[in-house]
Design a protein around this nucleic acid. Structure first.
Lengths: 204, 204
DNA sequence: TTTTATTTTAATCATTTGATTAAAAAATTT
DNA sequence: AAATTTTTTAATCAAATGATTAAAATAAAA
């Protein structure tokens, strides 16, 4: 079989390679990933990877763009929707973020650790400044607590949501938690985090 | 100069290499680090690295043990001291953790991302289960809120303290924060986090 | 069916990289 | 000062790794 029809069940070779790349890059990071690992995972010859993507670097870049978007696009529409109240925003962020991360637990540590190597390359893709400066959420936070930099609350929400996933291996090993218990805990946090943030906003 | 006197100003070659290894490993991670990078950073011949430490793996292990301890030993004495009240504990954890991390901002992302590769190898060094199960802090949290798994509050405290450092590159790039502003924000959090946790513990 | 274009592979290259070796240099001991 | 031990270096190895090439296999077009 050489070329595949563009129609039909087109999980093409190209997409098979990209899927394998997503898996291996996300689990091991750029530097620890060998192009041969990806080829093997995809069940294809190594040369095919370079035939379709030119280089490890270019393949990684495509995956990275996807993953950065995946990490930011969950909250972007919520944060910027001025028709949603502050409390609703926080609930929806917690809920949709946790739901997504339960499916992709190693996304945050992957993106954040790769991003620190070269933030600028991916800055123009996500524009995280739009998630913050003058976003509806930040405006609402400023109004609720004019005395505190709204970035504090953003850091709190993201920290409470993302940190358990980032530290998951340690928590799991330290407490002999199994996957079910971890999931249960994160499900609880969908309710708890909004209540906690609400309480935090009321401190004087 | 060959051997150095064991007494005297003994920043020995061995220590010079280790210091360079700390720096490079912490900044780039294990896989992205070349032993030649470390040798150059230390200003020594590559063969010396293997002469003193046998292998990249063994050198990394020594550095990693130090770094894991550095990350956990800040809070270990506080968490287990039953003579300190719950509120004091939280204040002290926030303060000493933030002080330490302002000096070593890339410690958390380094340790957590390397740790996910093989937690067990370093588990016997830190015994994080002692920081949690039956620690004084957990006992106090259970007493304050018997209805909520104390691990939630631990995750919240650590998340609010550590996450800003983990996401620092993104925050800094997104908001054009400079080092001074970031430091100021973290200084504010030394006061704010304990107040927030106190409020969280009171929600019903 | 023949021809052409596309896809896939096996083999191979050139570099990088962790590690070793044998010899030189420096310090310590006798 | 001579002998011995320790430290350092230059040169080199072997394996790993990203990438290329030329040929084979397959599909599509004529």
């Amino acid at each position: 079989m050489a070329r595949q029809k563009k129609t039909d069940t087109d999980l093409s070779t190209e997409e098979k390679i990209k899927e394998a790349a997503r898996k291996v890059f996300t689990r091991k990071g750029y530097a620890a990933t060998r192009t041969r690992d990806i080829a093997e995972e995809a069940g294809i010859n190594l040369a095919l990877l370079n035939y379709y993507f030119r280089s490890k670097e270019k393949l990684f870049h495509q995956v990275m763009v996807e993953k950065v978007q995946q990490l930011f696009s969950v909250i972007a529409p919520i944060v910027n929707d001025s028709s949603i109240s502050l409390e609703s925003k926080i609930s929806r962020i917690a809920e949709s973020y946790i739901d997504m991360l339960l499916k992709h637990p190693d996304l945050p540590i992957f993106v954040l650790s790769e991003l620190r190597n070269n933030v600028p390359s991916f800055m123009n893709i996500v524009h995280p400044e739009k998630l913050i400066r003058n976003s509806s959420l930040v405006t609402q936070l400023k109004k609720a607590r004019p005395d505190i930099n709204p970035l504090h609350f953003l850091a709190n929400i993201l920290g409470m949501v993302l940190f358990p996933f980032i530290a998951q291996p340690v928590f799991v090993a330290a407490l002999a938690l199994d996957a079910r218990q971890f999931k249960q805990m994160m499900e609880e946090r969908k309710q708890l985090i909004p209540a906690w943030v609400k309480a935090m906003l009321k401190t004087k």
